[in-house]
Computed example of a mutant assay.
Amino acid sequence: MLRLNLVLLLAVLASALYLVSTQYESRRLYVELEKATAHSRQIETDNERLQLEKRAQATPLRVEKLARDRLQMRTATPAITQYVTYQEAAVAGVPHE
């Protein structure tokens, strides 16, 4: 009878220790999951902010302003446009395809 009681006591202690370690691991994984979820939300927020900034930077008015200021480009007008016809290209020695 004493052997049976000792075996049962050891079985109860082993199952109790296993239960404690399982609960600890479960809590640790839950905290890790919450951290990953928070990090994911932060990345999504950053992505939305960057997409908004990208759209703001690519507006036609801003691109035109940068082209004028930094590249010294100007709008094409008939006064500064030079048209090339096929005959002029042949005379100039430009091969045609």
Rank of each mutant, 00 (worst) to 15 (best):
V63L: 07
E88K: 02
T75K: 14
A58M: 11
R27D: 06
L29D: 08
P60S: 03
L66I: 00
K65F: 03
I43D: 01
E97P: 15
V12W: 10
T45P: 04
T37H: 04
Q72T: 00
S40V: 12
V84K: 13
R28I: 05
S26C: 13
E64N: 12
E25F: 15
I43R: 03
L2C: 09
H96F: 12
E53P: 13
R68P: 00
T75R: 15
A38F: 05
D69F: 01
A89H: 12
A67G: 13
Q57R: 15
E48G: 08
T22W: 10
Q51T: 12
A90R: 09
S26V: 09
A56T: 02
L17K: 09
A16F: 10
R55F: 06
R28N: 07
Q57H: 07
Q72N: 01
L17P: 00
V63I: 08
E44Q: 06
K54C: 10
R70F: 01
A36V: 13
I80S: 08
L66V: 04
Q87F: 11
A56F: 15
M1N: 09
L50M: 03
L13K: 06
Q51E: 04
A14Y: 01
R27Y: 06
R74H: 09
L29K: 11
L4T: 03
P95M: 03
S40D: 07
A16R: 10
L71E: 04
P95N: 03
E34S: 09
L13I: 14
T81M: 14
T77V: 02
Y24Q: 11
G93D: 04
V31P: 14
Q42Y: 09
N47K: 05
